[in-house]
Simulated assay, not measured.
Amino acid sequence: MRAIQLKKPGGIDNLYVGTSELAPMGPGDIHVRLHASSLNYHDYIVVLGGIPTPDGRIPMSDGAGIVVAVGENVTEFAAGDHVVSTFFPLWLAGQPTIAGMQRVPGDRNDGYAREEVVAPATSFTKAPAGYTHAEAATLTCAALTAWRGLFVEASLQPGETVLVQGSGGVSVFALQFAKAAGANVIATSSSDAKLEKLRALGADHLINYKQDEAWGMTARKLTGGRGVDHVVEIGGAGTLTQSIAATRLNGNIAMIGVLAGLAGNVATAAIMSGNIKVNGITVGSREHQTAMIRAIDANGIKPVIDSSFALEKIGDAFRLQASAAHFGKIVLEW
């Protein structure tokens, strides 16, 4: 079958169309005909060679498609079911463990940039009702990261205020989830055009962080000086100081990205005196994903997809991602 593979040492130009064989079907496995994937920062780093992988690795952590057949011990799925992959196939429930966070698709083992896969049934969940394969493929990493940051680790409540940064997949999902839960949302971006798109999705307040370097205090002022309840922090060291400034006493910061820097000065005294909880978030478990999908089925949230590319055009998709010109998710469909 056709598969996208990566030559060592990595790089977008080292992606090529190759072939891969299906693994033998076991009693607890399902055979899935894949139809879509979506791009995440993790995939981008893998493709660039920032996370070393064996020569010929099949990338992409997110995959969605249709069940073709199930093993004799599988009862959760049937042929014809629409399914979406999980980011940590071994983290099924409970607290994260080192063992459970191994074998990330496209990283520790082959991912979903291929036409078919045989995998343990626990590596997938059912997709939301009425979702296209491309829509389902956006959920595995970006949506679940936002969900865990707001509802698993922070218990977002109606009427609270959430600060989201930028217009990538995690931030857009965080905005959508927060609004569905009855929260207020402050959104930041360096683009006025993207800010207007965030407003159209329900953002209550907008801040252009390039025009307002002290955007953390601006966000605090927008809450009447109290501070925001939750921050979805995608920048890392480069933006954390402003996020701390924005956060209320005993508020929550979900640290989910490092787009603005891997290391830097951290206002530890402000975290301590503000009794702020900073939670490192690396996606979530299968149990978290099934809960999120139940919520999506109940409230009808649909992903924001910026662009779609054919599987063999994966390099062009990553070039768009690198340009940061997109809004929401970039997907592959085949």
Results as ranks from 00 to 15, higher is better:
I314G: 07
P27W: 04
I66Y: 01
G238W: 06
A267G: 09
T268Q: 03
I330C: 10
Q157G: 05
E153F: 02
Q5L: 15
I30V: 13
V67Q: 07
E76Q: 12
P96T: 10
G18H: 11
K277S: 14
G18D: 09
G49D: 03
G328H: 08
A180W: 08
A245P: 00
I58C: 01
V331D: 06
R199K: 15
T161L: 00
G257W: 01
L259E: 11
P52Y: 00
S61M: 06
L144Y: 05
W334L: 13
D107M: 15
E116C: 00
L249W: 13
W91S: 02
L222Y: 08
T138K: 01
P9T: 09
K313Q: 15
V172Q: 07
A237V: 07
G235S: 04
G65D: 01
L6T: 05
T223Q: 08
V331L: 08
I301K: 00
A178R: 01
V84I: 12
S37D: 11
G300D: 03
V117R: 08
A174W: 05
I186N: 11
A142L: 06
V68P: 00
F87R: 03
L139S: 07
K221T: 13
V231G: 10
A187W: 09
K179P: 13
R114K: 12
I256P: 03
A193Q: 12
L90S: 10
V152R: 04
M217L: 15
T140L: 02
V117W: 06
P24D: 05
A317H: 06
G168D: 03
L222A: 11
D306P: 01
G159A: 05
P59H: 06
L156I: 02
Q321Y: 15
L195F: 09
L259R: 01
T138Y: 02
N14R: 15
I12D: 11
Y112M: 09
V74N: 04
A143H: 05
G264V: 00
N109R: 14
A154R: 02
K126V: 10
S273R: 13
Q157F: 00
T138P: 02
A142E: 03
R33L: 11
A214V: 13
Y131E: 11
S323W: 05
R33H: 12
A36W: 04
V232H: 00
I314L: 07
M255H: 13
G300N: 07
V162N: 05
L201F: 13
R220W: 07
A183Q: 04
N265T: 14
K179W: 00
F124L: 08
Q5A: 14
G235H: 03
R108S: 14
H42R: 12
A254N: 03
I301S: 02
V258S: 12
H82I: 12
N299C: 14
K313Y: 11
I58M: 01
A203R: 04
L90P: 03
L6Y: 08
V228A: 12
A113C: 15
D212C: 15
W334Q: 14
T122G: 12
G10S: 09
D29M: 09
